[in-house]
Simulated assay, not measured.
Amino acid sequence: MTEETFDQPVLTERHGSVLVVTINRPAQRNALSNEVLDGLVVALDDAEFDAEVRAVVLTGGPKLFASGADIRDLRANTPAAYMASRRSQAFARIMQFPKPSVAAIAGYTLGGGCEIALSCDLVIAADNAILGQPEINLGILPGAGGTQRWARVAGRYKAAELVLQAQNIDAWTARRLGMVAEVVPAEFVVEAGIAAAERIAKYSPVAARSAKAALRRSEETGISDALDYERAQLGILLSTEDHYEGIDAFLEKRRAVFTGK
């Protein structure tokens, strides 16, 4: 890392068709300041409109992911100000990012950091990862999906332990609960996240985006509406060049070359 990167709260680095986005406030335990959230939004905006980027990895490196909100930023908020704030809008943007995303988490993954991980499509955890929702210690609750996504991942009763009792869990427990896809040694967590993203990126990007959207729809609506949405997405994909390429490659026993069209 060069000297000037210490002043950049969010770093980006390309690995082929994968963009790695790194939270870079180690002295503040990667607390999610307004500047960090702004940096994440800018990186995701760039990734969304860059056709060469097919998947994104969000990480904080092998030592920690994010310790939660920057408390000084929270202290100044009123209810109305928070609802209209760029913090609220930033979390919404992260949750709505349309391309496949992988969280490569290590160390403290707490509060808003945990909610960012929950917003991703896959989570790769280091063996030193500690996850939790400590907001109740501050007289508040998780406000970026923590109550809802933990309940869907682990069930309401386990979610209550995290949210109402501020219990932390380790990476292995998070894997047993179904949130974490893989646990790896901390020094390899970023590489493992990139590898997971590369496995996604080799497939049709238009199909991956549609599949992600269909998976997310299962969280937002009933089964009948979700199935209708799934069928509609399939209908769209059946007319794409990538679909024909996938079929032709299978029949010709070769690797498909997907272009996202």
Rank of each mutant, 00 (worst) to 15 (best):
Val10Cys: 09
Ala195Lys: 13
Cys114Ile: 12
Gly222Leu: 14
Gly235Lys: 08
Thr221Pro: 11
Phe6Gly: 05
Ala43Met: 07
Ser88Glu: 03
Asp45Ala: 15
Asp127Ala: 11
Ile247Ala: 11
Ala186Tyr: 04
Thr109Pro: 09
Pro9Trp: 04
Ala171Gly: 04
Gly260Tyr: 05
Ser119Lys: 06
Leu110Ser: 13
Ala186Lys: 05
Ala104Val: 07
Ala125Trp: 03
Ile116Cys: 13
Ser88Asp: 04
Gly61Met: 02
Phe188Met: 08
Glu48His: 15
Pro9Gln: 06
Ile194Trp: 00
Asp70His: 09
Glu230Ile: 12
Val20Met: 04
Thr147Asp: 09
Arg25Met: 14
Glu245Arg: 14
Leu238Trp: 01
Gly145Asn: 07
Ser17Val: 03
Gly246Pro: 02
Glu13Leu: 12
Asp225Trp: 02
Met83Gln: 12
Arg231His: 08
Ala160Glu: 02
Leu164Met: 07
Ala76Leu: 10
Asn24Thr: 10
Met1Ala: 14
Glu4His: 07
Gly246Asp: 02
Lys99Asp: 02
Ala27Phe: 13
Arg25Thr: 15
Gly39His: 06
Ala192Gln: 01
Ala92Asp: 03
Glu191Asn: 06
Glu191Arg: 06
Ala232Ile: 03
Pro79Gln: 09
Leu19Phe: 06
Ala195Phe: 05
Phe6Ser: 13
Gln167Met: 14
Arg231Thr: 02
Val180His: 03
Thr5Gly: 01
Gly235Ala: 12
Leu58Val: 13
Ile105Leu: 07
Leu138Ala: 12
Pro185Met: 03
Phe97Glu: 01
His243Trp: 05
Gly16His: 08
Gln167Arg: 15
Arg152Pro: 00
Ala159Lys: 00
Val10Phe: 09
Leu131Gln: 04
Gly60Arg: 13
Glu3Lys: 10
